[in-house]
Amino acid sequence: MSALSEVLRRDLVLAWREGGTVGVALGFYLIVVTMLPLGLGPDLKLLSRIAPGVLWVALLLAALLSLGRLFETDLEDGSLEVMATGPVPLEAVAAAKSLAHWLTTGLPLAVLAPILGLLLNLEPDAYAVLVATMLAGTPAISFIGAIGAALTVRTRRGGLLLALLMLPLFVPTLIFGISAIGAALTSSDAFGPSFLILSAISLASVALAPLAAAAALRLQLQ
């Protein structure tokens, strides 16, 4: 257990010292959300209606941006092969690193989202539920995304490939996230089920995705 908390701590320290990645993801989120009203025109009603969808889709793209580096540096400097001979299984290492990614990307993006909601004239009732769905849904993005990061860690044009591989897998998270917000705004009964399924997808990803990520990493080390 101490080995895992050590991996987590090291990744957080590195993210803090290197700073760039988190900042770039947040900046990217901001600029994508800003571009949309510029392209669509400042129709506040329209913006208000599409705001949850825009905020979710832009969040997926911003999170993807930093996923590519998840295992890359550890593979390049040889840390990963030492971890593979370590006292904890590689599955647990992959899970610790995915958790670090969520803490340094998913969490800050979810916290930034309501501020960007102001730019899009998001309905006042939607702020709390927006953050709630993002907090419930973003773990799936970090953990499933880790599979993609592990698969593409050695490829040329890794970033673009990662988007092609991973975005289809994020469809359920996106749909249930948006669906929960929509249901909450129309006070429909569907909010409960949508939110629960969204959380279930995240839990299942946390439990299962590290198995696939570790399998891919072992193959990369061969």
Partner: peptide
């Protein structure tokens, strides 16, 4: 085993 390959497993910002 301690495995020390060609790479050092060293992080430059630490």
């Amino acid at each position: 085993c301690h495995y020390v390959g060609h790479l050092n497993g060293v992080k430059s910002t630490l």
